[in-house]
Design a protein around this nucleic acid. Structure first.
Length: 476
RNA sequence: GGCGCCAUCGUCUAAGGGUUAGGACGGAGCCCUCUCAAGGCUCUAAUAGGGGUUCGAAUCCCCUUGGCGCUACCA
């Protein structure tokens, strides 16, 4: 039974790196008929926030990502404590009565010889240990890392290959804090074992932690899961992406608010650190599910290419524009409608006509937001006349020609692209002007923009009455 | 400091001993054309450095350099 999990700690907004980790887990589960578990690793009570939990759900929901089972680590503390007790009872862990000091943590990590354990604690007799614990003295439970010379821990990573580390390079890490709360390592492994997680797919920042985890799984007498570590997402300066340092680029909601289609962002994230190896880039979700495998995952970190002036990776934008213009219109319509409504606009009443108009303009847009900004003239009665459009209208004789065109359209009950074109070209020929004057003038009159779709399409997009009215409006 | 991981165009990547080192984004240009897009075409730009192994290395090995990660009673 294949089971994977995504286990975020709710201490901040849903990070794009976390979202990608979810996606890879999800893809692997869907690809292989497995079960996707979502587990909140919320043992760090001080740093957890409800806002963060909301952000995780919001982000995942927006991206259209689903899971099959849900757990909270804080509901499972008894399990973690029992696991710690079991390891302790076997003699595979020991109590460390050294008082916690917050000052020496970094010092012992960076100065002098590497710290392995506190003197006198690991070697303490069971009697002394039990007695001191019974007397109420606080302690932390540490894993008793094997110290036999030459002893190593090994596992085979699906991405990074065989990994081996000497036990002498692994410190006696904590399992249970003196306040009775499990550490991340213990809680994570105890839960993974209990939930029978078969594959752990997570960020490469856990690669070296994995040796400790293998030790815990073995101490728990549990099957060691298969590991697959993912290369990290980093900033252009090479640093790990962080909210504090890089701002909104790390948050999934930024891309939602920037007008991305959920799937196009998923598509983009997939391409960071993974490749289908056949030059495909724009893919449907099903295509990605069908082709996803660990073989396509890279080992080097991937840069999210943003700048101070432009917080969004140009490739993400390009991918979004590709999806926007190539998906069946019906599939993007709900998102377009939501965007319009959010901007105080309304979709067109006639669904078929609405779909045609969206189809007409979408090839020029890169995000959903464009429908409400550049697309305003298609959905609103009032819109600005851009300077460039004004120039088209101020071509000598243009306004008079547009007035006359309005008259001819008004006189003809038939109103199609073909009839509009006939009238327009006939008028131009009669007056001895280039059709472009009328064509560009019409575009300027109908949309207030100098650029856009073919003018003849614009007439049918606006409809007979509105077209005539707008031509008249600019010819006064 | 110790241990580990990584290293192809600016960015995402392909090529896992033999290719003019391929594709995409970005940038530049051309074509198309009623404008702008789209689309098509062209150009731009890379194997970090040094040693090996081999008839032949982007590819295998070693060293150097650089980047990242872990080294907490954080996760």
């Amino acid at each position: 039974m294949l089971r994977v999990r995504f286990a975020p700690s709710p201490t901040g907004y849903l990070h794009i790196g976390s979202a990608r980790t979810f996606i890879f887990n999800w893809l692997y589960a869907r690809r292989n008929g497995g079960t996707m578990v979502l587990r909140l690793d919320d043992t760090d009570i001080e740093r957890n926030t409800q806002a963060s939990i909301d952000s995780i759900f919001d982000g995942l929901n927006w991206l259209n990502l689903s899971w099959d089972e849900f757990y909270r680590q804080s509901d499972r503390l008894d399990l973690h404590r029992a696991a710690a007790a079991r390891i302790l009872d076997q003699g595979l862990a020991y109590r460390d009565f050294t008082p916690a000091t917050d000052s020496n943590a970094e010092e012992k990590a960076f100065d002098g010889p590497a710290w392995r354990s506190n003197p006198g604690q690991r070697e303490m007799s069971k009697q002394d240990s039990d007695a001191r614990a019974a007397a109420g003295e606080p302690f932390v439970i540490r894993f008793r890392v094997p110290r036999d010379p030459g002893r190593t821990v090994t596992f085979n990573d699906s991405v990074y290959g065989e990994q081996t580390k000497a036990c002498e390079d692994i410190e006696d890490f904590a399992l249970l804090r003196s306040n009775g709360m499990p550490t991340y390592h213990l809680a994570s492994c105890a839960d993974d074992a209990d939930l029978r997680i078969s594959h752990i797919i997570r960020g490469q920042d856990h690669l070296t932690n994995t040796f400790k985890h293998v030790l815990i799984f073995q101490a728990l007498d549990a099957a060691v899961p298969q590991f697959a570590h993912l290369p990290l997402l980093i900033a252009p300066d090479g640093a790990k992406l962080s909210k504090r340092k890089h701002g909104p680029v790390v948050s999934v909601t930024t891309y939602r608010d920037a007008g991305f289609l959920p799937h196009s962002y998923v598509n983009f994230l997939c391409l960071l650190g993974w490749s289908p190896k056949d030059n495909r880039e724009q893919m449907t979700r099903q295509e990605i599910v069908d082709i996803f495998s660990f073989e396509g995952i890279n080992r080097s970190n991937a840069v999210v290419n943003f700048t101070e002036t432009d917080p969004i990776d140009p490739k993400a934008l390009w991918l979004n524009s590709q999806h926007l213009r190539s998906l069946p219109v019906a599939e993007i319509l709900p998102a377009v409608t939501a965007t319009l409504i959010a901007a105080g606009l309304a979709p067109l009443a006639d669904p078929a006509h609405y779909a045609r108009v969206v189809d007409l303009i979408r090839a020029r847009y890169t995000t959903l937001l464009d429908f409400a900004t550049k697309g305003r003239p298609y959905f609103a009665a009032d819109f600005p006349i851009e300077p460039a459009a004004l120039e088209k209208l101020d071509v000598p004789g243009a306004r008079e020609l547009l007035r006359d065109l309005a008259a001819r359209l008004e006189a003809d009950p038939v109103f199609t692209e073909a009839t509009v074109e006939q009238h327009l070209r006939a008028l131009a020929t009669e007056r001895g002007v280039k059709a472009g004057v009328l064509i560009n003038g019409s575009r300027a009159a109908l949309t207030g923009q100098a650029v856009g779709p073919s003018a003849f399409h614009l007439f049918t997009a606006a409809g007979r009455e509105r077209s005539i009215a707008r031509l008249k409006a600019v010819s006064r």
